[in-house]
Amino acid sequence: MARHYSSFDRRGWRWLLQRVTAAFLVVVLAFHFFLLHFVHHAADITFAGTRFRMSNLGYFATMWLFLVTATFHGVNGVYNALVNQGIAGTQKRVAQVVLVAAGALLVVQGTRVAVAMAGISI
């Protein structure tokens, strides 16, 4: 077991990206919570208000980036947790496929939602 450590995988990029997205998410998640629970109460949210916010390009872009980074951070976090648990072989392969698919699905659906909210017709 000890001898076959390969010298090809240098997967530091996932570690780094997890940190970079974390730094971004800390700010945006706090902003998101603050805006939609304290500035606007969650109960008072209507479609009109949502559309108004999402029509702003900066807000739209931020929210979309929020979606993508949160998806990566979450899915990668789950994967890390599984690897720490010691999954390997087929199990690991399956986890990778499932998680990548779930992440992709979430981003696609999230983008569709964002587009609908902003009222952009494609």
Partner: peptide, 9 residues
């Protein structure tokens, strides 16, 4: 050796 998946990460 250290930076492979079961190394430092």
């Amino acid at each position: 050796v250290l930076a492979q998946e079961h190394g430092v990460w």
